[in-house]
Design a protein around this nucleic acid. Sequence first.
DNA 1: TGTCCACTGGAAGGGAGGGCTT
DNA 2: AAGCCCTCCCTTCCAGTGGACA
Length: 411
Amino acid sequence: MESNIFDAYIQTKSIFKKDRDILRPSYIPERLPHRDEEIKQLASILSTALRGERPSNVLLFGKTGTGKTATVNYLGLEIEKTRSKLSNISYIYMNCEIVDTQYGVLQNIGNRFIDKFDERIPFTGWPTERVYNTLREKIDEKKRVVVIILDEVDKLVYKSGDDVLYHLSKINDDLINAKVSMIGISNDLKFTDFLDPRVRSRLGEEKMVFPPYNADQLKDILTQRVSLAFDSGIVDPSTISLCAALAAQEHGDARRALDLLRIAAEIAERNQERKITEHHVYKANNRIELDCVCETIRTLPTQSKLVLLGIILNEEVGNHKLTTGDVYTTYKQLCRSASITILTQRRITDLISELDMLGIINARVKSFGRGGRTKEIQVSVSPFETKKVLERDEILMQIKNCRPKLQTTLI
DNA sequence: TGTCCACTGGAAGGGAGGGCTT
DNA sequence: AAGCCCTCCCTTCCAGTGGACA
């Protein structure tokens, strides 16, 4: 019989019992361990909607992986279940990291209420005012309660200001039939400082803070998912403990715990092993960190990549501490050899700040007295790995062998 | 104590690219 | 086709500044 390269993979039985999505953070189990209090509290707020009243607006705070989104979606499913009796509740979830403009948010909400394709709000082109008016009319067509969930709402505010929130929070004044309430989810407690006081008070009628999970709670979460996803004996209790411990260090992040376990399982599966051990978890831990960084770098715009490459090339010849001026000089040389338009230093300052925010580099403003005041810049990821990723970029490939003249500092 | 460097980072605005309306 | 709107990426301009040095 002819053998195929994939045979070995096809024949091996999957380590997962059925769906590996059970280990994804987006999976909503029938019960959310250690979030009973939060669910009860939020449910009691939302229950007013079942009576056709407008629930208070709520703000949910908590670090990543503390179950905010899961809790909200869990309640969304519960509402869905009771929907047959109460078809007048619309539950709209939106992630503001993806939809992050005024227009985008309004357009997105509006289109949930528009069935006919040709009546839909286009993704650009209309004045915002018109999008808002259409949205308002559509919502108000029926007597209903609309619950709008804005996940990562802080991202929206930082990027586009609070205009949308202002409009949405006072939309009820213009509605006759429908009632709208909002749930804002944020992992930044301070973002409300950036809101107009009126918006702040309207949006934060109720506030809830989700505490991080501790290692024991994470263990419970993992144990629950493990029993759903695997046959018994495949995952050691010690494996679960390790995932929980590692994720607890990471501010009690359940998402991280689940990712660790899922990737550990995938590594074990690829090695055709039938048991997931601590060894796989450590491997998974390294991979998550590396993958995350590589992905961020890979998807950077070309100009940012050039800036980063400049910093790394300097690093390679021993210039560990660079100023904005140094980086700009190297950047210009790289641009010339790649025949790419050179941007102004002002713009590069912004790109440097962005790289800093992404955690790829470390840039602190420092004064050198007469030497001026500038940023002191260092890479904070592995230069070797970063360079490998950068060199895979099509545009940067042509300058792979370019050696810009680097200022060598006297040590 | 004042000077002065090398920027920082805000403000305003241009213009390209998406698209709608008339 | 001309006239709008909105967002994104960038430029131009510039007041402001921490601290070593004279």
